[in-house]
Amino acid sequence: MSKPQEIERSLNSDPNHCAELLRELLEMLRLDGWGKDDMFAIRMAMEEAIMNGIKHGNEEDHEKKVCVSIRLAKDRFYAKITDQGLGFCPDDVPDPTAEQNLDKTSGRGVMLIKAFVDECNYNKCGNSVELIKYRS
């Protein structure tokens, strides 16, 4: 029987649950023959997106969940990450690469997500993001 190409999880707002899911995802990518660079990029984007949901979206409120849907197709990786927070406007996040913001410790996660996937789309409310990475 072939390995499942989908993962659906409702995670507690606990960073350790993010690590468990990422381990499962990486194993799925490895078995599906994804390259090392693609795996690094997906892992980076997913970790940042899920941790943003846990920390900034749900503010680590253990009553709130982060829902993660992952689908692997032959040529692409797709994920949707949704938290139960109030959302945010990605355009309002200060540019971490601006000289005056370089030494600030915020805004870098969103930038890294965008840098490592091919498509990154937030919903209107800003509490859900869809990521697509094409296989190299």
Binding site: F40, R43, M44, E47, E48, M51, D103, K104, T105, R108, G109, L112
Partner: peptide
């Protein structure tokens, strides 16, 4: 080191300052 998250980078920023 094969993986370094933005949270880890933030610790280096604080250190550098």
């Amino acid at each position: 080191v094969s993986f370094f998250s933005s949270a880890a980078i933030n610790k280096l920023i604080v250190l550098e300052k």
